[in-house]
Design a protein around this nucleic acid. Structure first.
Length: 709
DNA sequence: AACTCTTTAGTCGCG
DNA sequence: CTAAAGAGTT
């Protein structure tokens, strides 16, 4: 009954769920966003008689898509089969597989993840004899992806200077190589399916009539291209329902464009967004702090979170002398919380950058407290798994040069650099893939011939077997298992290889397409949460970015120092500070009940001491909401460095000059020298040292390691 | 081909 | 400092 469905919704949530036309929902942190989204889908099916076939819901992460489906099947008796629910990339993949001919792709096109893409780019640059000092592969990768995300192919990029012109040329060459090899990178999935829909009117109209309702989660994270893609899918009679929070937009650096929210309202003639401001997560002290901080931003649609859950505890602030002491404080506080009966997994420790986790991990480890660090290497990105997948890719398509190069000599079988050089030359001469060249001239090199035989044998053996057995055969026959058995530290790698069989098994059960290609696409699109011990009771360590969407009883926000949080690199970017502030807003709103914030006056960063002022975000939290845990009111935070280098004018307050001009210092490579000057600001700051033998040298102050002598 | 030494770079990171 | 990639050596 629909009545049940809508029970317990607040008036704003109800308005969102039952919105008659297109709507933009401004959903604050903890305001029941996912519930609104799933309830609306259920309501559309039950009440508005919309067929599941006519629904498309798109999210950013596989996790969110999965959760939506799980909740939905709990709400609805009917099956969710006909619905299109998934990530942008997942849905584009689906579209391109279904219409691969129209999209100009081979039926079994492979998906390159970012690492694959980078190695493809390196290979291309090598083949074209590009100077990789002048044109860095990573830069080119970024250039390509940024342009594709803006919807631009190489022939559409406007390049005014020779450097950009060359990059654009290489972009074109790269797309040519991808086309020849039948591979598609992540950005290409989107661009290609956008182009498919925009060129093919028949196809476009088919989907436009099919999808009556399109729902978008985390709309503030959509890029320009993703928005354009959505517009193509939405026909004149399609209702669009977008949910997002401009205050939680923290992914501008990877193409997200909050401006889409305003554009969306204008395009669809929406007068005002539906605002969900009642928060069901935190006490009001936490929300007041978050509201106060975010209110300093100028570019926002504007909303304040509120709750009827009560005031709650004050926020606790701790000022540490250094990062070790900060970590020690966190450990002590956690012990206390545990004694009070809190589970470890109810506690999260957040930091701005990954490098900060080391000190905290060390303290937790020494104290014997269980912890789990989020966002390490993902399952399908581990070297041994990528090796196994490369063999599987070769079974599916031996002309996959990327895959061949990855494993042609792994485990080693006597195919060295020289052999590869010859192979490459032969392939280029004949204008064919490496595999064909290897087959043709295979007799010359014993190892290479063995490789060809091996792959062919594996292909033959695997042809009629179910997916999990194919995985098993690949792992065994390729010699990977034997190789890692012989290795001293190969234990966990062998476990992972066995886990691959499990992953294939799980995939075969969940998906209705059991093909090898489908599994490979799955591996590329879902880097995988196959992590061991994920369910254990452990303190959760993660970056603020990784914490988005999660909530914890108790949250520690560490490293609240100028230059770190807000990060100095962000300050030089347009709207950088506002994005950092949104990041702080996300961090604050993760806490349900108890919030600790801390900063250190000194911290070791890249092996160098760094003195930081307390973050401005600390001052932006109203003092009445904060309780200081330092016995004495903290001394001015910036006393130590000034005292350390008397007489030296710091170029900026957040850095001290570690050595006086004229001081004798020692450098690991050049030996002893005399400090002769400074220049530059921020990360550019350099120190000049006169060495007796090599003369004057400039070093970046951030990285150089010097000892006084 | 395997191993070791040197060099380099370092914000955040979904698919 | 540290991890990873590249260069150089045996």
């Amino acid at each position: 009954m629909p009545a049940d469905l809508l029970e317990g919704l607040n008036p704003d949530q109800l308005a969102a769920v039952t919105a008659p036309g297109s709507a933009l929902v401004l959903a604050g942190a903890g305001s029941g966003k996912t519930r609104v989204l799933t309830t609306r889908i259920a309501w559309l099916v039950q009440n508005a008689q919309v067929s599941p076939m006519g629904l498309l819901a798109v999210t950013f992460t596989n996790k969110a898509a999965k959760e939506m489906l799980t909740r939905l099947s709990a709400m609805l008796p009917i099956n969710t089969r006909g619905m299109w629910v998934g990530t942008f990339h997942g849905l584009c993949n689906r579209l391109l597989r279904a219409h691969h001919r129209d999209a100009g792709l081979p039926q079994l096109f492979q998906i390159l993840d970012s690492a694959d893409q980078l190695s493809a780019i390196k290979r291309l640059m090598k083949a074209l004899n590009v100077d990789t000092d002048k044109y860095e592969p990573r830069k080119l990768q970024h250039f390509i992806n940024m342009n594709k995300e803006a919807g631009l192919r190489a022939d559409k990029v406007e390049a005014w200077d020779p450097y950009t012109r060359r990059l654009t040329e290489l972009f074109g060459e790269y797309d040519g190589q991808c086309h020849r090899e039948g591979v598609v990178d992540f950005a290409e999935l989107l661009l290609r399916s956008y182009e498919l829909l925009s060129r093919n009117a028949l196809l476009r109209e088919h989907y436009q009539t099919r999808f009556r309702h399109i729902l978008v989660d985390e709309f503030q994270d959509t890029s320009k291209l993703q928005y354009a893609w959505l517009q193509l899918l939405a026909g004149p009679d399609t209702t669009l329902f977008a949910v997002g929070d401009d205050d939680q937009s923290i992914y501008a650096f990877r193409g997200a464009d909050v401006g889409n929210m305003g554009v969306f309202m204008r395009d669809l003639g929406i007068e005002a967004p539906i605002k969900l401001t009642q928060n069901y997560r935190s006490h009001s002290t936490i929300l007041d702090a978050a509201n106060a901080v975010i209110s300093r931003n100028e570019n926002r649609l504007g909303k304040d979170l509120w709750t009827d859950a009560g005031v709650g505890e004050q926020i606790r602030h701790y000022q540490a002398n250094d990062d070790r002491e900060e970590a020690g404080f966190v450990v002590e506080a956690i012990r206390e919380l545990y004694r009070e009966g809190l589970g470890y997994s109810d506690i999260a420790i957040l930091y701005r950058s990954n490098a900060q986790s080391r000190a905290i991990e060390h303290a937790l480890f020494t104290a014997g407290l269980p912890y789990r660090v989020y966002g390490g290497q993902r399952f399908f990105e581990r070297a041994e798994i990528k090796h196994a997948l490369a063999y599987m890719r070769l079974i599916a398509n031996p002309e996959d040069d990327n895959a061949l190069l990855r494993v042609v000599n792994f485990p080693t079988r006597g195919v060295g650099a020289r052999t590869l050089e010859l192979l490459d030359a032969a392939a280029r001469q004949g204008g064919m893939p490496l595999w064909q060249a290897a087959c043709a001239g295979g007799g010359k090199n014993k190892g290479l011939a063995g490789f060809v035989t091996l792959i062919e044998a594996m292909r033959a053996e695997a042809s009629d077997l179910p997916l999990p057995e194919v995985a098993e055969i690949v792992v065994e026959r390729s010699g990977l298992l034997a190789h890692y058995r012989a290795e001293k530290e190969g234990e966990s790698r062998i476990e992972n290889l066995n886990e691959l069989t499990n992953a294939a098994l799980a995939f075969a059960q969940e998906s209705d397409d059991h093909s090898l290609t489908a599994f490979l696409a799955h591996a590329a699109l879902e880097a995988g949460d196959h992590e061991a011990g994920a369910s254990a009771d452990a303190v959760q360590l993660m970056t603020v970015h990784a914490a988005k969407g999660l909530e914890f009883h108790t949250v520690f926000i560490t490293g609240l120092e100028e230059g770190l949080f807000p990060h100095e690199n962000a300050l030089s970017e347009v709207d950088g500070l506002e994005e950092e502030r949104r990041l702080m807003y996300v961090a604050l709103t993760r806490a349900r009940r108890r919030l600790f914030i801390s900063h250190a006056q000194m911290r070791m960063l890249h092996g160098q001491p760094r003195y930081g002022l307390p973050s401005r975000f600390l001052e932006e939290i109203p003092a009445a909401l904060v309780h200081s845990l330092n016995r004495r009111p903290a001394a001015p935070a910036y006393a130590a460095p000034a005292a350390r280098s008397p007489g030296v004018q710091p170029p900026q307050p957040s850095r001290n000059l570690p050595h006086k001009i004229g001081a004798r210092v020692s450098h690991a490579r050049y030996g002893e020298g005399v400090v002769s000057g400074y220049q530059g600001q921020g990360t550019e700051a350099e120190i000049r040292i006169a060495f007796p033998k090599v003369g004057d040298k400039w070093f970046l102050l951030d990285y150089v390691k010097l000892t006084a002598c």
